[in-house]
Design a protein around this nucleic acid. Structure first.
Lengths: 209, 209
DNA sequence: CTGTGTGAAGGAGTTCACAGCG
DNA sequence: CGCTGTGAACTCCTTCACACAG
């Protein structure tokens, strides 16, 4: 009936960008209407779950017909906060940091990497695509100038805690952490961990015949 | 009391490698005994949850004392299947594939990348550390020779489905998928998705003040 | 008397079943 | 009639509370 005022469950928030990605593809192929059943086929989630997820934020569909792809895309963009471009920084310009800069810039039209930061003077000053690697001392200034909202953290685990404190000090409140370390952060700071070797290990559990 | 015969919940399997990582650090610092409360401080999970997770597989602790770090590490290694080294392949040797080879080889003592595969003849034949990039046609042979168990998939999304079919054909049953595409796989094949731009987008949801 | 191991209670998210609108 | 939107049932995990072993 109407948009929900409670905080969206984490599980729902994690699925929204997947719906968005499917809608992007559909719109590119000039599909105008999609049913929850078809979205289910594309995403692997159940149709009921998709309807519940969307209904959490409002009634976006037309009964008997389905969802208008362009309209639904606009709604999801707004819900996530991707209706305007988001500026982010990358902290740690090693192999992984560089790969993520290459990867995100090409794959993600909604997000813009404004700068990378490192402590290694051999790397500082270099450019990855059009992203410059700067010393950590410039972080406050850059975050402020570009109003950067998210930091992608790819420093070695021993430096992760110091780096995250610097990041928070600069005014950023969301961190995408690739370091295999537990970050201690104050209330209100959101950390998403992508500990790739940990995830790989849990996958190995399932390889036992 | 005794080890459980049911399949371990996915949520538990995802936490085990995190406990393992903490134990590795503790053992390196010559800590011999650890309580669930201390593990809780290190990991951020509740002490009760940690005890339940471990108790699912057996009684590994000593009442009134805690857990022996070395003993518990051995147990977890065995549960996950990391007691013997696991061979994996990387499919797609672009920026991300190369970064993951560098990253895993250095960060993960339990896993060994035996080869990378690509379709680009400019890349084939090159080496990333000591990992050679081979043409896709060699996959069956390599997987067989090294008994590789997991494939890390980092090809562009348009090629992901074809690539995963080739991977499955070669005998691998677990795929760590970085392509932003839904893979259609038969029963019994385990796919773990790490869609980094999707995860970044869901993080942006939380940046709204 | 400490910290593990565990049944019982509670909570969160998913599935079911169907009411309701186009 | 078709497909969305949604209360109710259900399932799975987490938290609680405490028995029990060292």
């Amino acid at each position: 009936m109407k948009a929900n005022n409670r905080n969206a469950p984490k599980s729902v928030v994690r699925r929204l960008p997947i719906y968005l990605h499917i809608l992007d593809n559909l719109i590119e192929n000039e599909v105008e209407i999609i049913s929850s059943r078809e979205l289910s086929d594309e995403s692997g989630f159940t149709a009921e779950q998709i309807r519940k997820d969307l209904a959490f934020f409002g009634a976006f569909g037309t009964r008997g017909t389905g969802y208008n792809t362009v309209f639904l895309r606009e709604k999801i963009l707004k819900i996530i906060g991707l209706d305007k471009q988001t500026n982010i920084i990358v902290v740690g310009a090693g192999h992984l940091g560089i790969a993520l800069i290459n990867y995100n810039v090409t794959k993600n039209p909604y997000v813009n990497v404004v700068a990378a930061f490192d402590i290694d003077s051999d790397i500082i000053g270099k450019k990855i695509l059009d992203v410059e690697v700067l010393p950590m001392s410039k972080m406050n200034e850059i975050v402020n100038t570009y109003n950067a909202k998210v930091a992608v953290l790819t420093v070695p685990s021993g430096q992760a805690q110091i780096a995250v404190e610097k990041i928070i000090e600069s005014g950023i409140s969301a961190v995408f952490n690739f370091a295999p370390a537990k970050l201690r952060v104050p209330e209100g700071i959101c950390v998403e961990n992508a500990n790739l070797s940990v995830e790989l290990q849990s996958l190995i559990y399932y390889t036992k015949a």
